Simulated scan of single mutants.
Amino acid sequence: MSSCTVALSNSPVFSPSSSSSSSSSPRLAWLNKPRDRIRALAGGEPSPLLKRKRPARLDIPVVAVTEREVAAVPEVAEVEGDGYSVCCKRGRKDVMEDRFSAVLHQNQAFFGVFDGHGGASAAEFAAENLEKKIINELEKSDEIEAAVKGGYLATDAEFLNKDVRGGACCVTALIKNGNLVASNAGDCRAVVSRGGAAEALTSDHRPGHREDERERIEKLGGFVERRNGVWRVLGSLAVSRSIGDRYLKQWITAEPETRVIKLEPDHEFLILASDGLWDKVNDQEAVDIARPLCIGVEKPQPLAACRKLVDLSVSRGSADDISVMIVHLDRFC
């Protein structure tokens, strides 16, 4: 068994859009403190303060970061493993909030990319624990989608019990018995190359792009509104699913969406990446750039492909953390 769960601060290898209206949203007596506003939406008693047509911006508390964590994370981290490669680049923040994991057993493999917000704590916790939780669920039942869901929810519950702030978007791939099981919560994405054609295996959970997600939030008494050009849950979080995010948990679920496909010979490679890539590079572009370095060459260079995708996103103006993982599927067929 080979196991590699990577938190970037300890990586082993280093190198230097929608127009939905919020007019139907509930209007409450909004308080001056974010926690009071959330408590009011959750059914608490608001104080009789001045009402506003629009609530003030909801500020999610930020996790305190130690000097060691800041100092230990390089600008770029790269890892090349058995059948997978990863390149991560820190954005303009002083702290890298992305994490990833790769766990290889004799008869199965698990890969994940985790994009933290409000600090790296949730992403690091998910990278270290999500695979274990899913495997625990699989030992109880052979129903793969239920096991993945149970693993995500158990990871979320355990993180919330730690009373640590922040959250993380996740995309994972479990390869078992010739099947590829792709799951996500948030806006990290999985894209597979099938004979050179890109196919997204996940759908981003962004409330401005997913009408079903907006409706789910509104049914729970929340709302979605546009802030600084981005549609956000309660005017704050730009994703509608994640692990963590304690102060929005009534509306932000960790339940993943999962798709299972049977691996075929023309399934070439899988790209798992954070939104730092997908905000600047579309699915087919990513496959077109990576494929010449991965397929039909005497010496594949998947790490170079990861690096090239990261560089392209940066050249197009990305200021976010960017994590790109490429998994060679023929290694697992």
Score class of each variant (00 low, 15 high):
A56V: 06
S18N: 01
L8Q: 04
C88M: 08
S18V: 00
C88K: 00
D82C: 06
R27E: 06
S11Y: 01
A72Q: 09
S47H: 14
S9H: 05
L58I: 03
S23N: 01
V76F: 03
L28I: 13
R54C: 02
S47F: 10
A29F: 08
C87N: 13
S23M: 04
C87R: 14
V86R: 08
K33Y: 13
V70R: 14
S20Y: 01
S9L: 06
S18Q: 02
S2Y: 00
G44I: 03
R37W: 05
S9G: 13
T66H: 09
E67K: 11
V65T: 14
S20R: 03
V65I: 14
S17T: 09
L28C: 14
S24K: 10
L50K: 04
A56D: 09
A71I: 13
E69S: 06
S24M: 05
K51Q: 09
G81K: 02
A7T: 02
P16F: 07
V13A: 14
C88D: 08
R68N: 09
G43A: 03
P48Q: 12
S47M: 14
V63T: 05
P74N: 05
R37D: 12
P26T: 10
T5Q: 02
V63Q: 14
S11V: 13
T5S: 03
S18K: 02
A72D: 10
V65E: 11
S19L: 02
K51G: 05
A71S: 15
V73W: 13
L31Y: 01
K33T: 12
G83A: 10
P34K: 02
